[in-house]
Design a protein around this nucleic acid. Structure first.
Length: 270
DNA sequence: CGCTGACCCTGACGGC
DNA sequence: TGCCGTCAGGGTCAGC
């Protein structure tokens, strides 16, 4: 479910319910995720007051004085705020019980997500090598141009590499390349500075629009209250293989790049 | 160092 | 109805 807009939508949804609340109890039903849930999560988080809910890349950081709970939703994870007596369903792996009679519930059918405890100001190896946030000023066409020289990997694979830039997943990579008229298979190192300028701008626009629409609901992504996101209606290429291009009406091409479905228009994207 | 493909896991869906 | 193959929004890691 989550790319950056969905994670950001989740952050904005849960933050007001968490900030200022005290954690009363932590219940881990299934510790076996992408990596094991930190052993000391319950011991360290219990009794702490939540000061903030931040995001870095697709990681959510629930901040307390003692340290942070770091959550990744993987492919199928979601977070909901519910009444504390709501019975858990299948794949509801973790509950964080709060001082106001509610709980934060982590669900992840495929268990590609992860939940760690981070001691205050400790950092984490998974955060160490990340590229810039796409919506930061430091992310620009010039930056992409500099990073891409001599790189032979397809430009789509390049912009989905979190060491280059974070938060550009498969949906929005396809959409941003369509919006900027760049063919996804093109070698990253062969793209001009000017075209990278368009691409960087397209990434910002696509992500910002998707956040404004509350994310993209495809299968099971919903907000913390269960409502869907509406960006799906705005997708121009993702999920539209073999359908007509919205711009030129020619049939869209579908290929696989780096194990991920890639859709583009051979006429509009060069 | 850069790049490709295997892999972690469950569920939904289409074809037969 | 059931079985089987394929695919899914992520990311790491081994191996070349």
């Amino acid at each position: 479910m989550p790319e950056l807009p969905e994670v950001e939508t989740t952050r904005r949804g849960i933050a007001p319910h968490l900030i200022g609340r005290k954690v009363q109890q932590v219940l881990v039903r299934q510790p076996s995720l992408r990596w094991p849930v930190s052993d000391n999560l319950g011991q360290r988080l219990t009794g702490q007051t939540i000061d903030a809910v931040d995001r870095r890349a697709k990681y959510l950081l629930v901040r307390t004085r003692a340290g942070d709970m770091m959550i990744h939703l993987g492919m199928s994870g979601s977070l909901r705020v519910l009444a504390a007596d709501t019975p858990p369903a299948k794949h509801d792996h973790i509950d964080i019980l709060l001082s106001d009679g509610r709980l934060l519930r982590y669900r992840d059918p495929r268990r590609f997500g992860s939940v760690f405890w981070l001691e205050a100001s400790a950092g984490h190896p998974l955060l160490a090598e990340l590229g810039p946030e796409p919506l930061d000023e430091s992310f620009s066409g010039d930056y992409l141009f500099r990073q891409s020289r001599d790189r032979k990997t397809p430009v789509k694979t390049f912009i989905m590499n979190s060491q280059v830039v974070v938060g550009v997943g498969n949906i929005y990579a396809n959409e941003a390349l369509f919006a900027s008229g760049i063919r996804p298979t093109r070698m990253a190192g062969s793209i001009s500075r000017a075209r990278f300028g368009k691409l960087a701008e397209a990434i910002k626009v696509v992500l910002t629009s998707a956040i404004a629409a509350g994310g993209t609901t495809l299968r099971d992504f919903t907000h913390e209250d269960g409502s869907p996101g509406y960006f799906r209606n705005d997708l121009k290429v993702y999920g539209r293989g073999a359908l007509p291009c919205v711009a030129c009406r020619r049939v869209l091409t579908e290929v696989r790049l780096g194990q991920r479905t890639t859709v583009y228009c051979r006429h509009c994207q060069r």
